[in-house]
Design a binder for these strands. Structure first.
Lengths: 284, 284
DNA sequence: GTTCCGCATGAATCGATAG
DNA sequence: ACTATCGATTCATGCGGAA
């Protein structure tokens, strides 16, 4: 088993990415600093300036992404003056003008978001995971993320009715037909574009930006082993850590020294652990 | 108990709404024809023309909505040429320029979404429920939509007999009636902005685009009894039917004669049923 | 009366083929 | 090249009738 490589950089991804060649990464997945939050980072970007700040960095990402690669952007607009700000919508439109295709919008449903109540809104329990691509054709390994089929199938497929045995056209002309008998012995189904992952809140020092399951799911879906993955706003380094665990190569960039060192140590730790596991494996 | 009023109009809401005064409705909730679908209705609006088609109608809606009222827009963009079309994003931005505040975006998670498999995407299992307001201050009755928490509540709720549940629903039309909510009361929490409802599949005749539970939830949240509710694209009339059940006044508009007559008969039926129940109640 | 179980239904999307 | 039509694909649900 060839071990995976993990490179961590300190700096602005706008500069660091210049060191990387075109068409290098299979997947870019990141949770960028939200507007006006993390004021230490990038000087705290104002909502109104967010798109202009993001675009030059997205241009570099476009360049280093493989032609069949995917860019997953985990983001959620904040409420400003009682309104949802539109910078994310404007960003999507601007990225399309830059050449990106807006292929899909996944919803990440945060199952255990913290309790609370405001006079004019409920708890925000979801974030956008925007999928962008360079081409209509891109690499996607759908079988890697299949889920168990619903309970209905157990009873339904036990005994097939007559209409189930042949293709049954819908009566209302919706063009929809099915052949249930094709589903015999099927135990897994393809998932939807709504993802249910709990947030991890045990990390006191560093606010967990996303749970491990989220990048893991997209990494399974869009990469195979030894592909290169980039997180240009690495934060606490979850993407890089998961990449290591899944035997993918990865690059992490963060502008904060504090984050840089955190990711460094987290990934070094795993590197060491993997080596130990390998040694142990070989001994056995 | 004063009975509620329900008015159904046939025509384009752009024209019909002119008959209504300013600041009349407490809630506008609707699922307009999506781009390129329902070709019989409004001739099937092209995605690129959608915003221009919608805006003049939204202007009338703005006028007839009360200052503290709410507009809920249920919509989802379609995939065009392998990409998500941006007309919904553009619509949000355009509505803001018209004076609307984009207060919140709820996610409706469709648990039983349309099946299908494609090389480049998964099944679409969610739709947007966009909340717009005229002012930062608006009427919101958060306590009306509290939900039971904890697994024990779920399992006990499941064990309730169907009659208990049915009697309950017919009485209040709200899922939980007094007797049940009494012992649940202590274990209630505020919901989030992610709503989980399955679409209703009717075995026969007309199907509703959204399940009753969806308008019901927003009606509970944003109106009280005898408030006026508008659905400018009434379709099969789910909004008006639920409004009646919940003792709210409502106006429904649809351009199709077929829909107009359907809604007419559905709401007339309920009107009759309510009258009968009232008579019976008074006799007792 | 309750529970079980069959079954029609759906704001879909893609790729190929035809005009 | 650009648009229109057609066939193929796929789950989970509530209903109504049967047990």
């Amino acid at each position: 088993m060839k071990s995976s490589e993990t490179k961590i950089h300190m700096g602005d991804c706008l500069d660091i990415l210049k060191e990387y060649p075109d068409n290098y990464f299979s997947l870019i997945i990141t949770s960028p600093p939200y507007a006006d939050s993390r004021t230490k980072t990038y000087g705290g970007i104002k909502p109104d300036e967010y798109v202009q700040w993001f675009l030059p960095r997205a241009k570099e990402m476009f360049r280093v992404l493989k032609k069949d690669g995917t860019f997953i952007l985990n983001i959620k607009e904040k409420a400003v003056n009682g309104e949802r700000h539109t910078y994310v919508l404007e960003l999507i439109i601007a990225l399309r003008k830059q050449g990106w295709l807006w292929t899909e919008e996944f919803v990440w449903h945060k199952k255990n978001c913290f309790p609370g109540k405001w006079p004019n809104r409920f708890r925000d329990a979801w974030e956008r995971c925007l999928q962008f691509n360079k081409n209509k054709k891109f690499s996607m390994y759908q079988d890697a993320v299949m889920v168990p089929i619903g309970d209905w199938a157990k009873t339904r497929l036990k005994k097939l009715s007559n209409t189930d045995r042949k293709r049954d056209e819908s009566k209302v002309g919706s063009g929809f037909g099915k052949n249930i008998s094709n589903w015999l012995n099927r135990e897994m189904a393809y998932p939807t574009n709504v993802l249910h992952f709990a947030t991890e809140c045990f990390n006191r020092k560093h606010s967990a930006v996303f749970p491990k399951a989220l990048p893991e799911w997209f990494i399974k879906l869009f990469t195979k082993e030894h592909d290169w993955i980039l997180d240009p706003f690495a934060g606490s380094g979850t993407t890089n850590e998961i990449s290591q665990l899944m035997n993918r190569n990865s690059v992490g960039i963060d502008i904060l020294k504090e984050n840089y060192e955190l990711v460094k140590s987290r990934t070094a730790q795993y590197q060491r652990r993997i080596c130990e596991e390998q040694k142990q494996y070989e001994t056995n």
